[in-house]
Amino acid sequence: MDSYVVMRVGPERYGAHVSQVRSVERVGDITPVPRTLSFIKGVMHLRGSIVPVIDLAERVGSRRGSADEEDRRIVVAEVEDMVVGMMVDAVEDVVHIPPEAVEPPPPVVGGLDAVYLRGVARLGDDLLVLLNLERVFSAVEAEQLKQVEKLVRG
């Protein structure tokens, strides 16, 4: 049985595997980092270390809901030595999903390529989109490098 943190982004629900989630934080001061991709909102201070924050809605191409500011959270995940905070509209729950209940992802979900997904699981009437955070984060790295190269070359 795998456990997932359920994150709400606009109308969608995304799941992050609990083994990859370090903590859930309230949204505090975020310092913008110039010259980065637009979905990178900046860096924040978390118990003495610097953590980059991305806007998950923007990252996965989803609409930002009319979320209550009070509900918004930053889900801090750690994947392969990378610590990244994901800003979401709300964190709803932790759910247990047996591996056999996870279906392979359809090619495109909410603008997100299938490679970024672990799979899809039913959650009551809703779909829970399970994120493959390794891919979500590492692809960013690649894109960033591309962008930096573009900047350098003009």
């Binding site: 980092v33 010259r35 980065t36 990178i40 860096v43 270390s49 610097i50 953590v51 980059p52 392969e80 030595d81 990378m82 610590v83 990244v84 984060f137 960013v140 790295e141 960033q144 490098l145 962008q147 930096v148």
Partner: peptide, 8 residues
């Protein structure tokens, strides 16, 4: 800044 932002 960590690995995630190493491109910066």
């Amino acid at each position: 800044l960590g690995r995630y932002l190493q491109g910066v």
